[in-house]
Write a protein that binds this DNA or RNA. Structure first.
Length: 133
DNA sequence: ATTCTAACA
DNA sequence: TGTTAGAA
């Protein structure tokens, strides 16, 4: 049983993780829906978080505290490469990806066969690109 | 007592 | 994001 394995062991209830990360249960479940974490489940369907999950959540907390919004955090955490322009930073509204950046990223994901991931991760942003009826 | 999902006077 | 209802 190496370090890598122990880091992945499903050990904590959402209650513990709330205290460990300072996030609310609502936020933790919300971030899971956005693919930021993938906690295991007990037989009773209750979430079981590993050290890796907790660390991940703490990273999310950190980014949010620095002013990033959901799409900014997702881009930062889920390996979206540094495209010269829409780099990173935080504060005001600089974290929202432009439509051009969105199209570019979406195109890359689709070509890489990650369409399902792209759909779940950017439901919110993509809706911005839908045609208005 | 806790957590889960779904939904919003 | 908060909150809450109803079930597990």
């Amino acid at each position: 049983m190496d370090l890598s394995s122990r880091r992945q062991l499903p050990l904590f209830s959402i209650g513990i993780v709330q205290k460990l990360t300072g996030l609310t249960a609502r936020q933790i479940r919300y971030y899971e829906q956005h693919g930021l974490i993938h906690p295991a489940r007990s037989e009773g369907k209750q979430r079981l978080f590993s050290f890796a999950d907790v660390e991940r959540l703490m990273d999310v907390r950190s980014l949010l505290d620095d002013g990033y919004n959901m799409s900014g955090v997702k881009a930062k955490l889920l390996g979206k490469q540094p495209d010269g322009a829409g780099a990173a930073k935080a504060n005001d509204k600089a974290a929202e990806p432009s439509d051009a950046e969105l199209y570019k990223w979406l195109q890359e994901e689709l070509q890489a066969g990650q369409t399902e991931r792209a759909m779940s991760l950017f439901q919110g942003d993509l809706s911005r690109l839908y045609r208005r009826r």
